[in-house]
Structure formats: structure tokens, C-alpha cells
Amino acid sequence: MSVLVVIEHDRGVMASGSLEALTAARALSADVTAAVCGGTDDLAAACAGYGATEVVSLLHPFLDDYAPQAWGEAIAQLVAARDPDAVIACGTDRGNEVLAHASVSLELPMVANVLRIDASGGKWALTRVQWGGSLLEDVTLDAATKLVTVAHHANDIVPSAVPEHPTTFAPILDDALGSTMVRDRVVREAGVTLTTARVVVGGGRGVGSPEGFAPLEELAGLLGGVVGCSRAVTNNGWRNHTDQVGQTGTRIAPDIYFACGISGAIQHWVGAMASKNILAINTDKDANMVTRADYAVIGDLHKVIPAISEEIRRRRG
């Protein structure tokens, strides 16, 4: 079996998801080709470090920056030329988008966010993510070439160096395909974010108001962490959606997540469950957040959180 892996990068910076995809591809076959739109020598070397026996740089002006439609069509042309048995990308926003475009060009199905692949039969048997991970779906994939994205963070990244074998491929891209290319980008200052924070203090409807978040901000500040929230909070306009944890918000993985006044609906839980420790603060001892958390304090968050901050300050002297 031969597998083509779509490498995602941002202006030459490799996305970690692509290393997951390369590792997943090696579990299927030793014959792994990496395809890099607008590839560079550095990216080719990086792919060889993760077992890609050949690294194809796809070169065309429309591939110089991210352009979902052009990237998808270029991958499709490479697939048509090489006829691999499978094409794998990581199930990130870009990975899913590019492979979906490729699948349309190739008139093939595409299965997104797969956790398990059984490639033993003519049809593949796959387990994929639904509801952002709250539910799993077993599907069969019936196609001449199997197009699959692997769920992000579901595969370890395991290096396996092979000799470098870089090649190039020049797709023929219609002018119209340039229209979805990134035109401009605005870079913001990157501080600690929800995805990188070691401590997240999350507030839900129980916080009661935008001002009610002040004690949560204070606690987060004391611990070098950030504030997160539930959808009830963003829906009420109390905080910006960039703070939302969950299925349609951000997935977090801090050392500790304080879930304060959050009931623990499945769509919130799925964004928080990768936290190493969860401490729920809730007036309701039967709330789902409380029963699924590692630790809980039963009580009014408006009293409990200031007391925690106070105790931290007392110990620091």
C-alpha cells in the first residue's frame, strides 16, 4: 500500500498535526510520500525525519501562501499522477479544508477526523469523531483511493528518519483558483492563550454578570493563567467568544481547570476533558461538572474564589 500525506504548514512552519498524520500513515504502510504545497528544503528534511520516503514539493505561485482551493486542486493532481492507495491529512481546519477540496476534484468521498483505521478489507472500517468527540461513529469507506483526515491530537508524534528524497511537482492551476489565496494577514501579540495556559479559570452562567468575572481574573492573574468561559457566557455577551471552551470554542489542556458555575454540558466538557486536573466549583453537588471532575468545592463561587485568592496571597506573604 502507498500513502500520500498532505503536509500542513504556515509559511514554512510545519504544523504539528502533520507530524501526527505522518506517524499515522507509517502505521499503514512503509511507502509514505509527503506532499508539501509551496514546499521548502527545510520542510522536506522535516518530513524525512518522520519517515516520508519521498517528499514532493508542489510548486506554483498560487501555492506560495495558503489558498485552500488551489492547495486542494494541486493535491488532487498529484494524486491523479501518482495513484496512491490512500491520502491522509490531519483533521485541523486547514487539513480538513484542503482534503475536502481534493476530494471534490477527484470525485471521491472524504472522511474527516478519524481515530481508528482498519485497512484490512477492500472497504476501510473507520471510527470517527462526532459531536466534537462526545460521540464516535463507525463508518465504512468505499473508494478507489481512500481520503481520510486523522483527528488532531489523537496520534502520537514519533520520529523515524529515512534518507532524504526530495522531488517536485508542478500542478496546472486555473486562474480562478487564485481567488481563495490569503491576501493579507494581521499578527497579534501572542501572550498566554487558552490553548497554551497551564491554568485556566473558567466561568459559566453561575458567574451571573460580566463584572462577576473580576474575581476569576484575579485568581487567574495570581496563577499566571487565563480566564475561560462557557457558551452561556458568550451568548449573554458577557465575554468574547475567544474565551469560550468547548465543541465550538477552544479545546484546552491545562494542568488545572477551575470550572466555576458551569454545569458541564457535553459540548463544554468535550473542550475541557483534556485538562490534567479539573476542579469544579458549583452550588449544585449533582451538577455534571462536579460528578465528572477530579476535585470539587460545593459552594457559591462568589465566596469561594476570593477565599482561594486570599489564601494564595497569605501563603506568599
Binding site: 490534567k276 476542579l279 468545592v297
Partner: peptide
């Protein structure tokens, strides 16, 4: 779930936990 306590009195146990988690 380990219940660390009820109300503000639980703060001591919470901060003990934070220390333990580093």
C-alpha cells in the same frame, strides 16, 4: 470526585492542591 470542602473554608484545601500540582 474528591470533594475538597464546602464554601470558602475549602480554600485551604484548594491551595494545598495547587501547591501539590506545582
Amino acid at each position: 470526585t474528591i470533594i475538597l470542602g464546602n464554601g470558602p473554608e475549602a480554600a485551604v484545601a484548594v491551595v494545598d492542591l495547587l501547591a501539590e500540582l506545582g
